[in-house]
Amino acid sequence: MTPDTKRERLAISRPTEGAAGKTGTWRVFRPVVDKEKCNACGLCSTYCPDAAIDAELDVDLVFCKGGGICANECPKKAISMVREEK
């Protein structure tokens, strides 16, 4: 809390990116898109629970948890889940 803010009487959380940490560190498998096979339908981005695939269909690996719904739903089978190197 900055010194000049009034004392808050309620516990208020504020919107912050990374509120739960960099969830990409959870990943065991990483989605890799084969741009040759991809027809840009956008379903991977539609179904990502964490909105980690943007409009350009790039995966944000800082936050992607590696759940793999994108790969499972891709009608072109263009996404493969590749094991992360430790």
Partner: peptide, 12 residues
């Protein structure tokens, strides 16, 4: 919803 919540991977 900002990236990311602490929901389990694959949480619907």
């Amino acid at each position: 919803i900002l990236k990311c919540t602490s929901a389990c991977a694959g949480c619907s």
